[in-house]
């Protein structure tokens, strides 16, 4: 079954077509200062691969966490495509996709995505045969707090993602046990997403398009201010 993968959680737009065995085609571009390029990228990828949209049997999408505006474009495009085509959809955390991309390591994996405002989204993983296994929750914190957390982790670690690169000084101070994955792995790849999602379509562990929403991990400023005021009022 052909899976279409879309990830727009960082400043990179990445799309891929593939099955559980092979990647038929992939396109990704980063640094483009606009958020509305996911669907044109899919259109081009279909042309390049000669795959007809009618032959796509499932849509996989990276649901973040990441940059909200761009992230929503990929998620909404994926939802609408799945709805029109009448095919199942699978949403996978973009942190999982990042970690999956560097699964061939013996180290613990820390996937780190820039959350702007001096914070990062992150998740901790360990490599297992055929993939990675996440330990604990997806979280958001300052790079400093994450570095302090890594300080007490045991074993060697591989940090991957644009957040790891952006705050490399912070993490390199942890100690010699921390290694940074090369910049080429800094963004979630839709090809990794397709490989990760394909078994879920086969096992029919899919999501309903109507239920699928981005993983935000952070409330809006307006809600945070509101909560603070509410707490202040009750204190």
């Amino acid at each position: 079954m052909i899976v279409l993968g879309i990830d727009t959680s960082t400043e990179q737009t990445s799309v891929a077509l593939g099955t559980e065995r092979e990647i038929l085609g992939t396109a990704r571009f980063a640094g483009v200062n606009r958020h509305d390029d996911a669907v044109p990228a899919i259109e081009r990828l279909l042309e390049w691969t000669g795959v007809e949209l009618e032959h796509v049997g499932g849509v996989a999408v990276g649901i973040g966490p990441g940059l909200y505006t761009g992230l929503r474009v990929g998620v909404e495009a994926a939802k609408a495509l799945a709805q029109v085509l009448g095919v199942p959809i699978v949403g996978i955390s973009s942190l999982d996709v990042l970690a999956f991309g560097v699964q061939h390591t013996s180290r613990r994996i820390v996937a780190v995505i820039d959350a702007r405002r001096g914070e990062v989204f992150y998740g901790l993983y360990r490599p297992v045969p055929g993939g990675v296994m996440r330990d604990g929750e997806y979280r958001v914190a300052s790079p400093h707090a994450l570095a302090a957390e890594l300080e007490i982790e045991r074993g060697e670690m591989l940090l991957v993602g644009n957040g790891a690169i952006l705050y490399r000084k912070e993490f390199e101070q942890v100690d010699a046990r921390v290694e940074l994955a090369p910049a080429t792995f800094a963004h979630p790849w839709a090809s990794a997403l397709v490989s990760l999602a394909a078994p879920r379509f086969i096992r029919e562990q899919t999501d309903r398009p109507a239920d699928l929403v981005p993983m935000y991990l952070r409330k809006t400023d307006a809600e945070i201010t509101w909560d603070q005021r509410a707490r202040g009022a009750s204190a």
Binding site: D36, V39, E43, L53, T69, R72, E76, K79, A80, V84
Partner: peptide, 19 residues
């Protein structure tokens, strides 16, 4: 609102492409 516009536009483009 640009972020709000982009949600509807992403859906519209996907529907246009798929139909």
């Amino acid at each position: 609102l640009v972020g709000a516009l982009l949600v509807g536009m992403a859906a519209a483009k996907a529907i246009a492409l798929a139909t």
